[in-house]
Design a protein around this nucleic acid. Structure first.
Length: 273
DNA sequence: GCCACTGTTAGCAT
DNA sequence: CATGCTAACAGTGG
């Protein structure tokens, strides 16, 4: 469930805590979460310092000294937690890094095991198949580039928002919120949207994602930031998870439908087709 | 106990 | 260019 705002929150949170720490030990409890086929740089982290934390789409990039980067995708239920080494860890903790002179460690947890960690050379990060083909970052994409990017595309508007090769980082929750904010119907045909509508869409993307980052993301169930804290944006959701409740803008009952296999929430009055 | 559901994404057939 | 379906996995709720 971590989408762009959640991953951004984790990266900002952990950036402050991890920068400069030197890896003292690596514990791997469940090897398959490491995607490298052969023993890789990830097996040689001891002695390296963490020199950077970045986000690309929904992925976390941890840069280590010596030119190694860990690419981490949390998928639905992954967590990256900086916690006391003494705290008990459960069966869903698949990997942990201990640091020299620190009583805290960094743990990677993932109940459903969909997530992964991949070690690459820092210079090759953008070439990794997981990052290749990822669309631009929505929050640094200006309006004109956005419009150009959507030119010639077809299909349902919501499906388009979810496609990581078009725009990176938007997932199911924020797609619904962005559509509500822009007053557009999830099933609207992309190729038939007026320029005015596309501008509203672009602006809603900026607004919703930035606001969600300010509120440190949405915790429905599993999401936690780097210190184990819940987000606050779940209290500000306008449509997601509000099926049967009243629209905050017009009072109409929020409806839920299925769009490309994903649960989709919208206000039938504020979001006309 | 069984079944349907869940925030992600890749791979497949169409 | 697009769609829908399935699968990976574990937990939750009816």
């Amino acid at each position: 469930m971590p989408e762009l705002p959640e991953v951004e929150t984790i990266v900002r949170c952990l950036g402050c805590l991890l920068l400069g720490l030197e890896v003292e030990a690596v514990r791997v409890a469940f090897r398959p979460v490491i995607r490298n086929r052969k023993p890789s740089a990830l097996d040689r982290l001891v002695g390296r310092q963490i020199v950077g934390l970045r986000r690309r789409g929904k992925m976390i990039l941890v840069d280590f000294s010596g030119g190694i980067t860990a690419i981490i995708h949390l998928k639905m239920t992954g967590q990256l937690l900086f916690c006391p080494a003494a705290a008990p860890s459960d069966k869903h903790t698949h990997l942990a890094l201990a640091f020299r002179g620190s009583d805290h460690e960094l743990r990677y947890r993932d109940v459903r095991k969909f997530g992964f960690i991949l070690g690459v050379r820092t210079g090759d990060v953008d070439l990794a198949p997981e990052l290749r083909g990822l669309g631009p970052e929505p929050l640094t994409l200006d309006l004109l580039s956005f419009l150009r990017r959507l030119e010639g595309r077809r299909g349902r508007l919501k499906s388009l928002l979810l496609r990581q090769n078009v725009i990176a980082g938007v997932g199911n929750i924020y797609a619904d919120e962005i559509l509500f904010q822009s007053g557009l119907h999830p099933l609207a045909e992309v190729s038939r949207l007026s320029r005015r509508c596309l501008e509203r869409l672009w602006s809603a993307i900026q607004q919703v994602l930035n606001e969600a980052i300010l509120f440190k993301g949405t915790t429905i169930r599993d999401y936690r930031d780097g210190e184990g804290l819940e987000g606050l944006f779940q209290n500000r959701l306008e449509v997601y998870g509000r099926e049967g409740e009243a629209c905050t803008r017009c009072g109409t009952v929020i409806r839920r439908i299925r769009v490309s296999g994903r649960s989709t929430h919208f206000c039938p009055r504020c979001q006309r087709r």
